[in-house]
């Protein structure tokens, strides 16, 4: 059996896979924003999240990559799809796009990007001297339950409150009518 790394050098394969992931992310992000159909937007968002999962793998964290896939693609995109499938806004006639609005939005985001890129490129990023390379899930778990314990608990509380609040907000109006 011939692996792909026998034909092309592994470095080239890795680089190609990285840029493929970047392309997927940016394509998905544009798909999430540009089309007027909301279902297309959500599918684009899922694609972008998938690409970001690959980039997180390149950044060395399998755990966060899997969480990204589970939470964003598995939970958040599904919530959006349920929300628009179970309520009729999907069939609403979307108004025509106003050209002036799109052009203004484009210029605002372009200027923001240019300013940010300028900042990123002009700053001299100095790497720290003592890099610890301990990326394991064990370390993350240990720190979550010691150093970041309060934040961890607060996030749990926030999620519980958010879900109860969401049910209340969406349910109250129906009961009144």
């Amino acid at each position: 059996m011939i692996a792909i790394t026998d034909i092309i050098s592994p470095v080239l394969v890795a680089r190609g896979a990285f840029w493929l992931m970047v392309t997927i992310t940016l394509t998905g992000a544009l798909l999430a924003v540009v089309p007027r159909n909301i279902v297309h937007n959500i599918l684009g968002l899922a694609l972008a999240m998938f690409g970001i999962t690959g980039i997180y793998l390149y950044l060395g964290s399998q755990f966060v990559a899997m969480m990204q896939l589970l939470i964003y693609v598995g939970a958040i995109c599904m919530t959006y799809i349920f929300a628009i499938m179970l309520s009729p806004p999907l069939e609403l006639e979307l108004p025509k796009r106003r050209k002036a609005k799109v052009i203004t939005a484009f210029f605002v985001s372009l200027v923001t990007f240019i300013v940010m890129a300028q900042m990123i490129l002009s700053y001299k990023w100095a790497p720290v001297t003592s890099l610890s390379r301990d990326w394991s899930i064990e370390t993350i778990g240990q720190q979550l339950l010691t150093r970041y314990f309060l934040v961890f608990e607060l996030i749990s509380l926030l999620l519980a409150i958010a879900i109860i609040g969401a049910i209340m907000i969406a349910g109250l109006v129906r009961r009144k009518n």
Partner: peptide, 13 residues
């Protein structure tokens, strides 16, 4: 930064 700016574009338009 690109993702951020695409997001801003989406919110505005």
């Amino acid at each position: 930064a690109l993702l951020f700016c695409i997001g801003i574009f989406g919110i505005l338009q």
